[in-house]
Simulated assay, not measured.
Amino acid sequence: MGTPDKDRLGVLPAGPEQMIAEARKAFFVMFGLLAVVWLLQLANYADHYALSRDYAVVSGDVGGLPDILVAPLLHWSWAHIESNSGPLFVFGFLAAYRGVVRFLGLTLLIAVTSGAVVWLFERGDVQTVGASGLIFGYFGYVVVRGLFDRHLIDTLVGVVMGASFAYLLTVAVPGTPGVSWLGHLGGLVGGLLGAWLFRDRRPRPNGSDDTLQPRSDHPRADLHKELGDLGLL
């Protein structure tokens, strides 16, 4: 069982020290994920992109359904992987720094929703691979997570990321040639769904004798606690 300072997955840091520790874990997790993606790209390139052809998501191919979990790690070219690597690291880190266990569940959910939308609705002659679905999922998650968790810092991060990268949504709609907008849309849906499914379910903090501390049932109790942890109250 988790402690009162953690959610039911036991992954939400309770204070600045834990937040820093989880951020450090998130950095190494994303570094490791990118290392795997690039090592696969080297093997893929050496084999004339046979891995991408063999493990791509193809609409209606029942035997290829497990490839939904593999396709996000593969790419069609060096330009493809280079364009995905930066956003994947940035949004992945922002999605992971509140808890690596939660992040792994989120990643699985996004991969499934992104791949499922492609498998269901893409043309049957199209092979889809790439980390773009994960990127869009992490983006959606980061933008709305703070609203569900009622965390001030996450809400501010979401506002900044949403305003700065809103242009990404232009490739989640039909019409962009050579881009799997269905995969992007499916990933975005997975990220938004994940923000709700993996939201903070911690019990309310206990009351305090400090007269400046709001009651535990106060609607802004979590906000006051986080501001206090950051030394702003």
Rank of each mutant, 00 (worst) to 15 (best):
I135E: 03
P205L: 05
R150K: 13
F91H: 09
S85A: 15
G86S: 13
N84E: 15
V62H: 04
G10M: 03
L197V: 15
A46K: 09
T176K: 08
A166K: 01
F27K: 06
L9K: 00
R24N: 14
L212R: 14
D209H: 14
R102C: 10
S180D: 11
S83W: 01
G228H: 14
A195K: 05
L33S: 08
P66R: 00
R145A: 15
G175C: 09
A172R: 08
T176P: 02
L120Y: 01
R220D: 13
G86M: 13
V62Y: 06
D47N: 09
F103S: 07
G86Y: 14
A46I: 10
T211M: 10
L73Q: 08
N44W: 08
G15R: 13
S59V: 01
Q213N: 09
R145H: 12
P87Q: 12
S216W: 00
W76Q: 14
F165S: 10
P203V: 04
L185S: 05
R220L: 15
V58P: 02
G32M: 03
F121I: 05
P174M: 06
T107P: 06
V100M: 12
D54H: 13
P174C: 09
F89K: 11
G194A: 05
P177D: 09
G191L: 02
I81E: 02
A131P: 02
Q18E: 15
S132V: 04
R215Q: 12
V160A: 12
V29I: 12
S59A: 15
G64S: 07
G140M: 04
L188V: 03
D229R: 12
Y55K: 06
L223V: 15
N44Q: 10
L104W: 10
A26C: 05
G15T: 04
T211C: 07
L69A: 14
